[in-house]
């Protein structure tokens, strides 16, 4: 599909998709190359190493543990290059992305089982928005008492809602900084799809509601 290069939004969309393709290629290079080599080394060790005397533990257990750590580090790197599930399922991609913050922010998630696919650039933006939001909240003086992230869709209208409730009033100085973090994401998202966002700050809480019309990946 040709890109209308006179349209800034289409150019932005093209650039986003192009970057995503590049990052996917790099992630696949690591997965198909380096990770496969680590797996091959692991298998050779597992098959050829004897057991420790009077034990069911491999004599190469320390080396196998080192390989596992190396594999996890590289796999994490691949996941940062390209969010897992991003091309196939926004709910699963979000579920994966928020894992590091679920315990620290007492975050409950509610995502539907079925979800019509979103254009890649929209899905990526939403993931980055949520990651930026949760990273910022994790730096606040104290964590929320509870927080919740939900995805919902009615016909072609989709919404992403985040709420955080705190046990004590928040420092008013925190709100502008958070808004500064969120606004570029929200404004860029509005370039890609008809969308509206409501960001509400209360003395002891904060909520974000982003709604957009679903333009399926095939209609772009």
């Amino acid at each position: 599909m040709t890109t209308d290069i006179s349209d800034p939004t289409e150019l932005l969309r093209w650039w986003h998709q192009y970057q995503a393709q590049m990052l996917t290629q790099e992630a696949d290079f690591v997965r198909n190359g380096i990770l496969q080599e680590i797996i091959a080394i692991r298998r050779r060790l597992e098959v050829s190493c004897p057991l420790q005397p009077h034990s069911t533990t491999s004599a190469c257990a320390p080396q196998l543990a080192d390989l596992s750590r190396l594999y996890s580090l590289l796999e994490g790197f691949c996941d940062r290059l390209q969010s897992p599930f991003i091309a196939d399922s926004l709910p699963l991609a979000l579920q994966h992305a928020v894992q590091p913050w679920q315990a620290p922010l007492s975050l409950q998630v509610q995502f539907p089982t079925a979800w019509a696919p979103d254009p890649l650039e929209q899905a990526q933006l939403l993931i980055l928005l949520i990651k930026a939001l949760l990273s910022r909240l994790a730096t606040w003086p104290y964590p929320p008492q509870s927080s919740a992230l939900t995805l919902a869709a009615v016909a072609s209208c989709k919404t992403l809602t985040f709420q955080a409730q705190y046990a004590a009033p928040l420092d008013p100085a925190l709100s502008p900084r958070l808004e500064q973090t969120l606004q570029p994401f929200l404004e860029t998202f509005r370039r890609f799809a008809p969308a509206h966002a409501v960001v509400l700050f209360q003395p002891d809480g904060f909520s974000l509601k982003l709604g957009w019309e679903s333009l399926s990946a095939s209609s772009i």
């Binding site: 496969q36 080599e37 797996i39 091959a40 080394i41 692991r42 298998r43 050779r44």
Partner: peptide
Amino acid sequence: DHEAVLGGTVMALEK
């Protein structure tokens, strides 16, 4: 298609 991985997997299955 990765020979070394295939070899390791086959060895494990043969055992």
